[in-house]
């Protein structure tokens, strides 16, 4: 694995004449402890938060009172930065990067090509790589599959795929339907509140039954059903988090491209787990004995 596949290519820099208090703000904003110092695009040093702290007034109140004369505005990055920072080339191995980070006790190292800085390799990103390695070696199979059901043309495909995967992994399968706020149209003066509550309850019960009917008993699966309310995207993401779903299965909605695409995109952008979008009629979306999708 080469450093160029791991480095961050978007990062902030400071120049050597940046005032120190501005540089400190930049470090806080980027949530980093190390930032490269550049002049005309070329790397000339590294600025670390600990070096700024050491230069500044004491953190101990009884000593800090004697630091009243310290003015951060006159000091620039030049006073705190390390020159001659060791760097890596883009073809360096991740092994080299780790050895450098550990031996120099840095939390980020610049990647330089032809004297200009092209990326930063950070300890934080390397910890992410370690996490991926440890996680994927540890778990096997899916534990919980969550299928979003809208009772539309995408439903049968989504349920079929969810059932297939849950059986393959002996995972728990949950079908989720988000009620749409349709009852507002029933509200007009004189309509008793009890009728509205009753109508809502009836819809919940009816939809629950419809969900159960979607999965054939022969599948041998224990299926949970959930009815939620609210903005569909937010409600689905919330349930996926609550259930610690490993996979969210959604049917694609070819006949309502605009709305369907928006919700699908929202789910993919916000879901706590990967999202599987299944097309009706495609290989994964067919199952011989799936129940009727209902109206």
């Amino acid at each position: 694995m080469r450093v160029k596949t791991l480095m961050r290519t978007r990062f902030s820099t400071v120049s050597d004449d940046t005032p120190l208090n501005e540089a400190r703000l930049a470090l806080a904003r980027e949530q980093t402890d190390t930032i490269p110092v550049v002049r005309a695009g070329a790397l000339i040093g590294l600025l670390r938060a600990c070096d700024i702290d050491a230069l500044g007034p004491s953190t101990v109140p009884s000593l800090a009172t004697h630091d009243w004369a310290w003015s951060s505005s006159s000091l620039t990055v030049r006073a705190a930065a390390i020159a001659d920072a060791l760097t890596l080339g883009p073809e360096a191995s991740v092994h080299d990067a780790i050895r450098l980070l550990v031996s120099q006790d840095l939390d980020a190292v610049p990647v330089v090509e032809s004297a200009s800085i092209v990326g930063m390799v950070t300890t934080r990103d390397l910890l992410g790589v370690l996490l991926d390695r440890l996680d994927s070696a540890h778990r096997t199979g899916l534990d919980r599959v969550l299928v979003v059901v809208d009772f539309d043309e995408g439903t049968a495909a989504a349920v079929a795929a969810g059932v297939a995967l849950a059986r393959q992994h002996r995972a728990r399968l949950t079908l989720l339907h988000v009620l749409q706020a349709r009852w507002r149209s029933l509200l007009w003066p004189g309509r008793p509140r009890e009728m509205l509550d009753w109508a809502r309850r009836e819809e919940r019960v009816g939809r629950s039954r419809d969900l159960v009917a979607l999965v054939p008993r022969e599948s041998g699966l224990e299926v949970g059903t959930l009815i939620a309310t609210g903005g569909p995207g937010a409600a689905i993401v919330a349930e996926a988090s609550r259930l610690a779903a490993d996979l969210l299965v959604v049917g694609s909605r070819p006949h309502r491209p605009f709305l369907g695409r928006d919700l699908t995109n929202e789910l993919v952008e916000r879901a706590p787990c990967p999202v599987l979008v299944v097309r009706p009629g495609s290989a994964l979306g067919t199952e011989e004995s799936v129940g009727r999708a209902g109206a």
């Binding site: 996680d135 699908t264 995109n265 993919v268 879901a271 706590p272």
Partner: peptide
């Protein structure tokens, strides 16, 4: 817009199922 262009186009146009994980801000497997 946290999705790359490729992911968005595949979600819209691929003839087969599409599985999308997020590289950042989502747990690893």
């Amino acid at each position: 817009d946290a999705l790359g262009r490729l992911a968005r186009q595949l979600l819209h146009r691929a003839p087969i199922a599409v599985l999308v994980a997020r590289a950042r801000d989502q747990r690893a497997a």
